[in-house]
Design a protein around this nucleic acid. Structure first.
Lengths: 197, 197
DNA sequence: AAGTATAGGTAAATAATATTTACTTATTAA
DNA sequence: TTAATAAGTAAATATTATTTACCTATACTT
């Protein structure tokens, strides 16, 4: 009986090839034949391991997201207070998008337009992350740090909307902006709004 | 010499077919042959009027966006003050997404993943709209309504990020939320932030 | 140690789609 | 009335995704 679930070399090469190609190109323009030749395997092998091209995409996202969640959980260790936790999450998220354009490209541009994604394992992880955020927001409302007027889901929308919108330009136009600065601006906005006092 | 630039019947039918199909399906799953049969024309005719499938998509978006901009300009007439204008724009944008799912689907899910889009006429209109928003924000900063700490582009990101993120769920999961309520929550958030006073 | 199941892999066929080509038919301005 | 051109078609071709049938090595069973 096989004990380890190590991924076979061919599968690994396929995943890496997909990642590599996504670095500079969008999903629909990448062909199976390109993936196969970049990986140095035959096209058929891709279908041994993945149902279709999209499932491979989702797999790559899932891997990225697992690392992201691990990092987030680590980053939150020892942070006290809901606002401080949100501040940290904003920073970590921007940092992810900034340093992993493939991750950003997939999640912001490539997956949400297909139903398949919402049934994928990757999407389960996204939901898990969403749950974490909502819990923090609710915690903040209970202990009086966060205004109760606006429902938690809207707060999450605003937070991630701002982050994602700001990061999109970097991914699309290859702009580079400092994570620290972007995080500060977005945190300030989400916390205090734009209205002059 | 032809004086009017009325669109020929075939072209019109193609555009309508594309719109109709986008109502319930995503772009990549819609085939040229389906568009042709829905429109009641031959596949070849589609290529007479559009370079490729994506150009047709961009055309549909352009049309929608033209209506949207017209409506926005109308909505802003007589509104005084930068914050009031932004409030109105938030409401109008949400209203658009809520009542025109094809518009929402195209702009939020289908176009941004291809370079072609950023060279399209539709994108020029998006830039025009962005310019309008930035001008309002700058106006607000000058007259003291809006806090100068955060750069205008970040404010725009936050505003549209929040709107788009909130509207995405409706488009993807067919959720229906009231425009009025969503607009109010998002405006409150963008204006005052989440921090308890 | 032989047999057998199975995982890893290939090569070539097929299916699904997008796009091009060469052609017809109808309009319209000179 | 005619030449140019716009509207439209049908069928061929190109491109790309997916399936099929097969080979080979390895590891587990008896």
């Amino acid at each position: 009986m096989k004990t380890t679930d190590a991924i076979p070399p061919g599968k690994g090469k396929i995943i890496n090839a997909m990642r590599e190609l996504l670095e500079n190109r969008n999903f629909s323009s990448i062909t199976i034949s390109e993936i196969a030749s970049t990986a140095g395997v035959t096209e058929g092998l891709i279908y041994k391991y993945f149902k279709d091209k999209r499932e491979l995409l989702h797999y790559v996202l899932k891997e990225h997201y697992e690392f992201f969640l691990l990092q987030i959980e680590r980053d939150l260790k020892g942070v006290q207070g809901a606002l401080n936790k949100l501040r940290k999450i904003i920073w970590s998220s921007i940092d992810r998008y900034a340093n992993h354009r493939v991750f950003g490209r997939i999640i912001l541009l490539e997956v949400r337009n297909s139903d398949q994604y919402f049934k994928s394992e990757a999407y389960q992880l996204v939901k898990k992350f969403n749950r974490i955020i909502l819990d923090i927001i609710e915690e903040g409302m209970e202990n009086g740090e966060i205004n109760k007027d606006v429902p938690p889901s809207y707060i999450r929308h605003a937070m991630f909307g701002a982050i994602e919108h700001a990061c999109l330009n970097r991914i699309i136009f290859n702009e580079t902006v400092s994570t620290d600065e972007a995080a500060e601006q977005i945190t300030e906005l989400v916390f205090n709004g734009i209205k002059a006092q």
